[in-house]
Computed example of a mutant assay.
Amino acid sequence: MARMAMAQEKIFALRREIARIEGTLPERLVAPEAGSAVVLRRGISAVREGRSAFLGTGVPGLDSALAGGVPQAALTEFHSLETRDAGATAGFALALVSLLRKTDSQRQGKSAVCWIGMANLFREAGFPYAPGLERQFGLSPGDLLFSTAEHLADALWIAKEAARLKDFCAVVLEIRGNPARLDLTATRRLHRRAQEAGRPVFLIREGALAEPTAALVRLEVSAAPAVPRRTVAGPLGDAIGHPAFTVVIGKSRTARPGRFILEWNPDEHSLREIRPAHSRALVPASGHRPYLPAAGGTVVALRPAATAPTAGDQQPREERPTHRRPRRAS
């Protein structure tokens, strides 16, 4: 009995430690009714610093599906299934960084960003372009610390150490594919560092498949058609509008699915939901069909198809041609 009690105590201790790392350690239980219980969970460390626990994207539908927005003190993943969408995935993550920097500047906080990337990814997808980062997201060269690593172990170490520094408002780690070293244990360490520091860690995975990680939110990002640029005289048909992204919720705390097409305005540093030009539903919803089915045409009579003869219509055995032939001599 004593050994069993000790084993159960160790199991409970491990469960409490895992819950503490994931930020879901229950504080107390409240039973408002008989047979039911409500678990009140501890808030993440951003609340203790006087900041909001979530970063609002400015898109009501996306914020509602994520129960408030992107968590500010946690690990968040951004996925692209193909390497050609690396620019769109990194661009959407940097759009959230720009929103975060705007919020921190209002609170007189630090606004520098640490961006760590794998060398093989940059050889395949290209290096970041400094004038474009400053024009689109307001990241000047002095606000960005860029680091490349040949090995994933070095990139993970840099990300964990950068998450401790208070000079950074966010840490971005960009890798390619599904390396074996980036397992559940490694992502739990990144998530724990983000919780302890009270700042987000954005994990960008280019050309990767979804797998179990400790991230609270996983968003699948790809490029979307831009809407025509609008002027006072009207839309310009041949002009390319602002960058657009297709964002699909792959994982969240609410487990609510969602697909959004968002446009980034580099002048106002804001996101909004759009509907691209020449897009419509392929099949109207069953409850909102505007057209009734067409009326029936003229009824015509068709000839019955030829049927095979029945058993009563068959010819007698002696009248069949095959039996009129002379038999072969034995």
Rank of each mutant, 00 (worst) to 15 (best):
A2Q: 09
R3T: 12
A7L: 05
Q8E: 12
F12G: 07
G23P: 00
L29G: 00
V30W: 15
A37Q: 07
V39S: 14
R41E: 08
R51F: 01
A53Q: 04
L55V: 08
G56D: 03
T57F: 13
V59F: 08
P60M: 08
P60V: 13
G61W: 03
A65E: 06
A65R: 07
A65F: 01
L66N: 03
G68W: 11
G68K: 15
G69Y: 01
Q72R: 15
L75P: 04
E77Y: 09
F78E: 01
S80I: 07
L81Q: 02
R84H: 10
G91D: 00
D104C: 14
S105Y: 09
Q106A: 13
R107D: 14
M118T: 15
A125C: 12
G126Q: 07
P128S: 11
E150Y: 14
H151E: 13
A153L: 05
A153P: 04
A155G: 07
I158F: 14
D167V: 13
V171Q: 11
G177F: 04
P179W: 03
T185Q: 12
T185D: 08
L190G: 02
Q195C: 05
E196C: 08
R199L: 11
V201T: 08
V201C: 14
F202E: 00
A210S: 06
P212R: 03
T213V: 10
V221A: 00
T231L: 02
V232W: 14
V232H: 15
A244F: 04
I249N: 01
S252P: 02
S252D: 03
E263D: 14
A277P: 00
R280K: 09
L282R: 05
P284V: 10
A285Y: 03
S286Y: 05
G287D: 05
P293G: 10
L302Y: 12
R303W: 03
R325H: 04
